[in-house]
Simulated scan of single mutants.
Amino acid sequence: MVLRRVMLAALAALPVGLVLAGEASTQPALTTGQRLALKGYDPVAYFTDGKPIQGAEAYELSWDGQRYRFASAQHRDLFRQDPDKYAPQFGGACTMNLAAGRKREADPHHWIISDGKLYVFAGASGPANFAKDPQANAARAAENWQRLRGEAFH
Rank of each mutant, 00 (worst) to 15 (best):
Leu3Trp: 06
Arg4Asn: 14
Arg5Thr: 15
Val6Lys: 06
Met7Trp: 11
Leu8Cys: 04
Leu8Ile: 09
Ala9Cys: 02
Ala13Pro: 05
Leu14Cys: 07
Leu14Asn: 01
Leu14Ser: 02
Leu18Asp: 06
Val19Thr: 12
Leu20Phe: 13
Ala21Asp: 15
Gly22Trp: 03
Glu23Tyr: 12
Ala24Asp: 14
Ser25Gly: 13
Ser25Ala: 12
Thr26Glu: 15
Thr26His: 15
Pro28Asp: 02
Pro28Lys: 09
Ala29Leu: 15
Leu30His: 09
Thr32Met: 07
Thr32Lys: 09
Gly33Glu: 04
Gly33Met: 07
Gln34Glu: 13
Gln34His: 11
Leu38Trp: 03
Leu38Asp: 08
Leu38Val: 12
Leu38Tyr: 06
Lys39Asp: 15
Gly40Glu: 09
Asp42Leu: 04
Pro43Lys: 04
Pro43Asp: 01
Val44His: 03
Ala45Asn: 11
Ala45Gly: 07
Ala45Cys: 08
Ala45Ile: 10
Thr48Leu: 12
Lys51Val: 04
Pro52Leu: 04
Ile53Ala: 00
Gln54His: 07
Gln54Ser: 04
Gly55Phe: 01
Glu60Met: 12
Leu61Gln: 10
Trp63Ala: 05
Trp63Glu: 01
Trp63Asp: 00
Asp64Cys: 14
Arg67Ser: 14
Tyr68Pro: 02
Arg69His: 09
Arg69Gln: 14
Ser72Gly: 07
Ser72Tyr: 04
Gln74Met: 03
His75Ala: 09
Arg76Ile: 01
Arg76Asp: 12
Asp77Thr: 10
Asp77Gln: 07
Leu78Ile: 03
Leu78Gln: 05
Leu78Arg: 06
Phe79Pro: 01
Phe79Glu: 00
Asp82Pro: 05
Asp82Glu: 05
Pro83Leu: 04
Ala87Val: 08
Pro88Leu: 07
Phe90Ala: 04
Gly91His: 05
Gly91Gln: 07
Gly92Arg: 03
Thr95Asp: 01
Thr95Tyr: 03
Met96Gln: 09
Met96Trp: 08
Leu98Met: 04
Leu98Arg: 03
Ala100Thr: 10
Gly101Ile: 01
Gly101Asn: 02
Arg102Asp: 14
Arg102Trp: 12
Arg104Asp: 15
Arg104Pro: 09
Ala106Tyr: 00
Asp107Thr: 11
Pro108Gly: 05
His109Phe: 08
His110Thr: 03
His110Lys: 11
Trp111Arg: 13
Ile112Arg: 15
Ile113Ala: 03
Ile113Leu: 04
Ile113Ser: 01
Lys117Gly: 06
Leu118Arg: 13
Tyr119Pro: 00
Val120Asn: 00
Phe121Pro: 03
Ala122Asp: 07
Gly123Trp: 06
Gly123Phe: 02
Gly123Thr: 10
Gly126Val: 01
Pro127Gln: 00
Lys132Cys: 09
Lys132Asn: 14
Lys132Glu: 14
Lys132Phe: 11
Asp133Trp: 08
Asp133Val: 02
Asn137Thr: 10
Asn137Tyr: 12
Asn137Pro: 03
Ala138Met: 08
Arg140Cys: 08
Ala142Thr: 15
Glu143Ser: 10
Asn144Lys: 03
Arg147Ala: 05
Arg147Gln: 09
Glu151Arg: 10
Ala152Glu: 10
Ala152Gln: 11
Phe153Gln: 08
His154Ser: 15
His154Pro: 15
